[in-house]
Simulated scan of single mutants.
Amino acid sequence: MPGPIQSIERAAAMLRLLARGSGHHGLAEISAALGLPKGTAHGILRTLQRVEFVEQDQSTGRYRLGAALLHLGTSYLDANELRSRSINWADTLASRSGQEVRIGMHHDGAVLVVHHVFRPDDTMQTLGIGGMLPLHATALGKVLLAYDPELTATIRRRELTSLTRRTIVKPAALERVLAEVRTAGWASEAEEYMPGEASIAARIRVPGGLVVGAIGISGAVDRICDAANRPKPALVQQVSQAAEAVSRALAAES
């Protein structure tokens, strides 16, 4: 049986991206969000324009959905779907890392926790499903911000709340961090959200490259980070492998 056609997957991911938020994105934003070279992204956009799936604003050069797709849905997965397809990998990650695991997606300007696995120990813990976490101060949030230009634009216009002395509150500093996240495919934070706690998260993608969520671990700083407050490489690898496994599961279902 023939395999998937990569160009169609990328075009579909591009349409889903344009269906988000205001739906007006520049070429650089689109290529960065989907991890594509600008030339590749531009070629797909030109093709979509020819079939009227995409329109370009002549005054700004930004792209939006075309008339043929005005009723395209605004999301690919709902919270229940993402959770159901990620449960097994989240359990495995908690067992291997010894840390609590959260799966999150964007909702109403924050990270919505759609699944939460407790640390595999006997300490008192509180279930976090349905909780909302800040985008700029958590590893999950940084991943979601890095691959969603609409969210990033919103953050630029918003005053960032300082939650601890380590929280990033300057938009320019956050932009630099998000650029690093896009390069690496994962994010981390140490005591930016809560004193004494740290987290690592990686992107969950659907075919075509669109990031629909993130999976991550969190715990005490000394268990997540080394003496220099850098995330431990072994944990980064475990989180990244879990994210790739969930992404493969989503691809198999599509």
Rank of each mutant, 00 (worst) to 15 (best):
S247P: 01
G141Y: 01
G209F: 02
E9H: 11
P37A: 07
L144H: 05
R182K: 02
R156F: 08
T92G: 07
R64Q: 15
D57A: 08
G196A: 09
E175P: 06
G208R: 04
S240Q: 14
V114S: 10
I215T: 13
E175A: 14
G219W: 06
M124H: 13
L18T: 00
Y193H: 14
I129G: 01
L178K: 09
A153L: 05
E244V: 10
P134S: 03
V246L: 01
I217M: 03
E100N: 09
A79T: 11
I155F: 06
I129L: 08
A179I: 10
A214R: 07
G98Q: 05
S75P: 03
I87T: 14
T47V: 12
A79I: 08
E55G: 05
L15V: 08
I215R: 07
R96I: 06
A41K: 01
R83I: 05
L17R: 01
T138L: 01
F53V: 11
L112Q: 08
E192D: 10
I103K: 01
V177N: 02
R64F: 08
A137M: 01
V211C: 14
R10G: 02
L27G: 03
A139K: 03
V169E: 05
P134M: 02
D57F: 03
Q58V: 13
L93E: 11
Q6K: 13
T167W: 05
L15W: 10
T60D: 09
Q241M: 06
Q56R: 14
G35T: 00
T40S: 14
A249T: 07
R83E: 08
L45F: 06
W89G: 00
Q237E: 15
R205W: 02
Q58C: 07
V101Y: 08
G208W: 04
M105L: 09
M132A: 14
G35E: 00
P195E: 09
A173R: 13
E150F: 12
L36V: 05
L77S: 12
I200C: 04
F53Y: 15
R102C: 09
I204E: 04
I8C: 12
D222V: 13
V212Q: 05
V143Y: 01
D148Y: 01
R166Q: 06
Y147D: 03
N88I: 07
G66W: 04
L140I: 03
C225G: 02
R182Q: 00
L145V: 05
